[in-house]
């Protein structure tokens, strides 16, 4: 079955996740705690920005209105970005950044694996095959750091615990399927995120146990990103991201 134009919003959800998290990681450039992490954070950012680029190009083609990858990445209103709230959270300290990465990668690695194996959309399956390998690395890298920091010094353990309390409430949205996502699931493009919950829970539980971290009890999960209801940090992120395209409209760079 050919992927329909009606699936564009679901693809944009994933593309926006990749763009916004890639952008956040790129903010670290020049400011990482250790030179090796300069390399690793940039690498992970590059992976995500590369995935975003491929997804926007695909979405633009499906949409058929002549919107380029850059039109989609740079020229929408805040309300039209449909990334989950987790990825737009500010970097905070290194504990926040690595935990955010762990939460996201622990979801995306199996997600891409399923897309690669089962998607009816050959382009998406192709993007997924590469992305799965990349996210497996992110998962390993972020997991190792969460363990180091969780089971490191008193200070690093405290910071790790703070990050978990802060960020865990944004993980519920990973498993929610918007109407657009439900359509893509029904069309066989994407896996049902709910079906990945068991694996995600197990991954996080393993890392937390080794990190001697307590799983925070969160009663109310935050949501809204998929509807374009973002937190206050998002506008500032977009102000930077979109600066050149807004200040000099319609030019080639």
């Amino acid at each position: 079955m050919a992927t329909a134009e009606t699936n564009v919003p679901a693809i944009l959800e994933i593309a926006d996740d990749c763009l916004i998290l890639g952008h956040r990681l790129s903010e670290w450039c020049g400011h990482a705690p250790i030179l090796e992490e300069e390399m690793a954070l940039a690498n992970m950012g590059l992976d995500l920005l590369g995935q975003a680029r491929a997804l926007y190009a695909h979405a633009g083609e499906l949409e058929g209105k002549g919107r380029s990858e850059d039109d989609l990445a740079f020229l929408r209103r805040e309300r039209d970005y449909v990334n989950c709230l987790l990825v737009e959270r500010r970097n905070g300290d290194f504990a926040h950044t690595m935990l955010r990465q762990l939460y996201f990668a622990a979801f995306m690695q199996p997600f891409w694996r399923e897309v690669a194996a089962n998607s009816t959309d050959a382009t998406l399956a192709g993007i997924a095959a590469k992305a799965e390998k990349e996210m497996a690395y992110h998962l390993r890298h972020a997991g190792e750091w969460v363990i180091r920091m969780g089971d490191g010094t008193d200070e690093s353990a405290r910071r790790m615990a703070d990050a978990a309390i802060e960020l865990h409430r944004y993980t519920g949205e990973l498993f929610m399927a918007s109407p657009a996502r439900q359509k893509a699931i029904a069309d066989g493009l994407l896996p049902d995120p709910e079906s990945l919950r068991g694996e995600w829970d197990a991954t996080i539980a393993t890392v937390f146990a080794e990190a001697k971290l307590e799983m925070p009890e969160i009663r109310v999960m935050q949501k809204g990103g998929r509807d374009g209801n973002h937190g206050e940090d998002m506008g500032h992120l977009l102000a930077e991201l979109q600066f050149m395209q807004r200040a000099y409209p319609g030019q080639t760079w």
Binding site: L35, E38, M39, A42, A52, M244, W253
Partner: peptide, 21 residues
């Protein structure tokens, strides 16, 4: 990097600065 004008430029610049590291 955070203000690069296109996705292609953003990726190239981040990769370049990573090379310097």
């Amino acid at each position: 990097i955070t203000r690069a004008p296109s996705l292609r430029r953003k990726i190239a610049l981040l990769a370049k600065v990573q090379d310097e590291g």
